[in-house]
């Protein structure tokens, strides 16, 4: 018995969320005939693409045994900066100078915003040895406040077709957000599996002291990880803003919770060192399918939250019991 568990555990661990997803899909499919349609399929994938972007970054952070609570606010500020620059440009009153932004310029500015905020998280955590929970909690408020200041509390709308194409367009029969989030997943999976950076992330999460003794530059890797998490939150922000054709000052509120849920359901250990990007993608799909299914089944939104919470609990309990024999 002991031996067979040992042999199959890696496989079970790898596929536990996939098995859960299959069961979930079959159940919803049996209860609703609208679920297994092509349109609904693309719909679910488009809806989860924002969470996938954020959660990929969150996975990196969690693998180093950290956490990033600021992603929702960073998403909002990045989207708002891009929208604001695109719509109004920058006016420098002193020199009567006006700088206009193209769609490309605005996107770059948005991505840069997210990355800089993420870099700042990493700097605070490595330079002052702050617990990631605290540093990113501070950033959660700071970035939200900056979003309010920048937008003056009102949505920024009317961003033009070429910008909204990002969140609503189709390419080769596939929604553009799915292309984008899929591309990100592919790149980061390669990064984690095939490069030094990925190894170091796992090593730091598994044992920071062993990684340090092995010559790994812990601070540099952590800075990179938090910067990437910020940048990926910004991608999410651009997708949200573009889909709604509007940068909402309260966009992304509590998105950090959905993304932590995706990471945890996907089997990544919150104590670091164990987990995978693909697991997180499965976690995000599970949450997306669950949301979609509950809507199709006309379950009240209040119950939806309860169900989501229970799923998270179950996922963590299964994860705990599968790693207890270590």
């Amino acid at each position: 018995m002991q031996i067979s568990l040992q042999t199959y555990r890696p496989a079970l661990l790898k596929f536990q969320s996939l098995i859960a997803l299959l069961i979930l899909c079959l159940t919803i499919g049996l209860l609703s005939d609208k679920f297994f349609t092509v349109a609904n399929g693309w719909n679910v994938l488009r809806q989860i693409s924002v969470n996938v972007c954020i959660s990929v970054g969150m996975t990196l952070v969690v693998l180093t045994a950290g956490i990033d609570l600021s992603v929702g606010s960073v998403l909002a500020l990045s989207g708002a900066i891009a929208a604001g620059l695109l719509r109004n440009g920058i006016e420098l009153p002193a020199s009567n100078l006006y700088i206009g932004f193209t769609v490309f310029g605005a996107i770059v500015a948005g991505l840069l915003t997210g990355s800089v905020l993420g870099w700042f998280n990493g700097w605070a955590i490595t330079r002052f040895k702050l617990p990631p929970f605290v540093a990113t909690l501070a950033m959660l408020t700071i970035a939200r406040g900056l979003t309010m200041l920048w937008t003056e509390g009102f949505p920024i709308t009317g961003l033009g077709d070429s910008f909204t194409f990002l969140g609503t367009g189709w390419l080769l029969g596939i929604p553009l957000p799915v292309w984008i989030s899929g591309g990100i997943v592919l790149v980061v999976v390669l990064l984690m599996d095939q490069t030094r950076f990925g190894r170091y992330v796992y090593a730091i999460g598994g044992s920071e002291s062993a990684a340090r003794l092995s010559g790994v530059n812990i601070n540099r890797i952590k800075m990179l990880v938090y910067t990437m998490a910020g940048g990926l939150a910004a991608v999410g922000g651009l997708l949200v803003t573009s889909r709604l054709d509007s940068a909402q000052p309260n966009a992304g509120t509590s998105y950090e919770l959905d993304s932590i849920a995706a990471v945890v359901i996907g089997g990544t250990s919150l104590s670091g060192g164990r987990g995978s990007i693909l697991g997180t993608v499965q976690g995000a799909v599970i949450i997306g399918v669950l949301n979609n299914g509950l809507v199709l089944l006309n379950v009240s939104p209040f119950w939806q939250q309860v169900v989501k919470g229970i799923v998270i609990l179950l996922a963590v309990i299964i994860d705990k019991s599968s790693s207890r024999n270590d």
Partner: peptide, 13 residues
């Protein structure tokens, strides 16, 4: 166990 190895990673890694 703490400083020499990353216990949760395999022998090769």
């Amino acid at each position: 166990k703490k400083d020499g190895l990353v216990l949760g990673l395999d022998v090769r890694t």
